[in-house]
Simulated assay, not measured.
Amino acid sequence: MVTYEFNRESRLLTPGQFQSVFSKPSRYGSSHFTILITANNTDRNRLGLAVAKKRVKLAVQRNRIKRLVRESFRLKQHDLPGIDIVVMVKSGIDKLDNSEINHQLEKIWRKIIQRQKR
């Protein structure tokens, strides 16, 4: 049975886990996202978020973006191969509405799935 949970095992938690993604990533991007991925040799996908205060000033906006990314990942995680993902944002993302953010994430997930199948 497929579960759509997003629990502690679905997250990158330690600096070491983030560092392993930053050390040799594959990059995917859109106009407002940079997504770094690396294989993690497990059957789980793990998500890390790096939403910098420099890029998104207001905490309420940073939290909204993180919520949208987590929810999008939660629904797509079973289509993705076993990878660790770090999502970083670019300036101006706080001006986008939720549907536009979801649309950009959807395109990136599709790109990752296609490239990893090769």
Rank of each mutant, 00 (worst) to 15 (best):
Ala39Phe: 12
Leu47Tyr: 04
Thr34Gly: 05
Val21Tyr: 04
Lys95Ile: 03
Gln77Met: 04
Ile112Ala: 03
Glu5Met: 06
Ser91Lys: 12
Leu96Pro: 11
Gly82Val: 01
Arg44Ala: 09
Asn98Pro: 12
Leu13Val: 08
Val86Cys: 03
Val51Cys: 08
Phe6Asp: 10
Lys95Gln: 15
Asp94Phe: 07
Glu100His: 10
Val21Met: 03
Arg74Ala: 03
Tyr28Val: 01
Gly92Val: 09
Gln116His: 14
Asp79Ser: 13
Ser20Leu: 14
Ile65Trp: 05
Asn7Ile: 06
Gly82Ile: 00
Ser99Ala: 12
Ser31Trp: 04
Ser20Glu: 14
Asn40Ser: 05
Ile85His: 00
Arg74His: 08
Ser26Val: 14
Arg74Leu: 07
Lys24Thr: 09
Lys24Arg: 14
Arg55Asn: 15
Ser72Gln: 01
Ile112Ser: 02
Arg62Thr: 02
Phe33Met: 00
Gln17Tyr: 03
Gly48Leu: 10
Phe33Ile: 00
His78Asp: 08
Asn40Leu: 05
Ile93Tyr: 03
Leu58Gly: 11
Val56Asn: 01
Leu96Thr: 02
Lys107Thr: 06
Ile101Pro: 06
Val56Lys: 05
Leu75His: 00
Asn63Val: 10
Asn45Cys: 15
Glu106Cys: 02
Ser99Glu: 13
Val56Trp: 07
Pro81Tyr: 01
Leu47Cys: 07
Asn41Thr: 10
Val87Arg: 00
Thr14Met: 02
His32Arg: 10
Ser91Gly: 15
Ile85Ala: 01
Gln61Thr: 00
Leu96Ser: 03
Lys53Phe: 02
Arg27Ser: 13
